[in-house]
Design a protein around this nucleic acid. Sequence first.
RNA 1: GGAGGGGUGGCAGAGUGGUCGAAUGCACCGGUCUUGAAAACCGGCGUGGGUUUGCGCCCACCGCGGGUUCGAAUCCCGCCCCCUCCGCCA
Length: 424
Amino acid sequence: MFDLSRIRKEPVAFDAAMARRGQEPVAEGILALDKDRRLILTELQEAQARRNEISREIGKAKGAGENADDLIAEMARLKADIQKTEEQERALGAELQDLLSGLPNLPLADVPDGENEDDNRIVHLQGEKPAFDFDPKEHFDLGEALGLMDFERAAKMSGSRFVVLSGGLARLERALGQFMLDLHISEHGYTEMAVPSLVKSPALYGTGQLPKFAGDLFKTEAGHWLIPTAEVPLTNFHADEILAEESLPRRYTALTPCYRAEAGSAGKDTRGMIRQHQFTKVELVSIVAPEQSIDELERLTSAAEEVLKRLGLHYRRVELCVGDLGFSASRTYDLEVWLPGQDRYREISSCSYCGDFQTRRMNMRCRKKGEKITRFPHSLNGSGLATGRTLVAVMENYQQADGSITVPEALEPYMGGLAVIEAR
RNA sequence: GGAGGGGUGGCAGAGUGGUCGAAUGCACCGGUCUUGAAAACCGGCGUGGGUUUGCGCCCACCGCGGGUUCGAAUCCCGCCCCCUCCGCCA
């Protein structure tokens, strides 16, 4: 969501930035609509002022026992007028709102140009690809051979894109989640949160999934939506609030299930755990003062990277080009972990700087002590990490020739003495 | 799910048809007094929007949305949320 005064001030720059994201020019149309609306609004408010005035006069006249018929007649006319103008104003306002709420966030100026993920820029690499003296397998072959990863039975109950983990693998995924949460709360200053997995529409509007991406989400008969990421409840936690600026930054983390309809990804990643309708993820959300937000993206991304480092996983950080940016993001770093079984890097975290795009949508503001003006804090979010995909990465990188999986050292405290996951 | 009660400014809490954006208290901010602080006293103190060079003027908002009325925080209807009791339940 954008500040109209910003578009008013720099319509050309606005359209130019939108054009980088492949958007048609909209500034002119928006400004014309806004101008019309303000004209009508002024008209409406003048009529309302007159109405209030007459109302007072009627009160006075009646109090004095005088006749007020003329005034009441004028009021009747005015009332019809107000109703009509009100409808016009509402229609224009709704049109404007629709237009604005469908626009994606603007990329920062130095985000690289590009169409799609092929144009993303590699920022740095960490670690090295592990060497194998055998052909490394993909995680689903390993998991099924171990008898601890069952897609067939999951499909029987739930359809495609679900999995049942058991034994050591179920525990390994749980260990990953606990490990990540503990790391973020004890070393990165995040506050652990336990949040709802079901939310109502305004929350999804706030973070930007609605109105445009309803098709990617699951909805219940009672009208709730299943969260596609904990970014939604964590960021909306302070929706409609005015935060004391001294209380910023606020850093929240949560381990939640995430649900995605994966509409439009038929045929993509159909095997294995890479793309599921349900997965768990540790999410990081930061709410910060506008001046701190660029630095915070580095901080947040580093926090996510630390998980991969401690697990001894080789990965790279890439910066998304404008064409690959999500709807609400101004800059995004993806962390891509090396998967030897797949012989390629796969996204395991996505860390985004959203500026005031989301906080405007959810009307979250902040204010310095003693000051009158409020402003919009900036929001950031990132996976720290997706535990399902991290499980995949651990399996493929720590596999042995016999198909067993060595447990990474960092997870030992969470595995109850289990050092190797093997078929029993 | 059933019955009842309730949602007012940062908090507490008045207000049940006519200058009510809303008494009062607390909290907070500024000032006087004081060596300093406290107390006391004085003043200020919601949000969003329109308009104006500016002072300012105006509009909307008392959970949300409709309605009645010349006029609604106040009356009526629907929805949401909270509390109490009952039922059910991890």
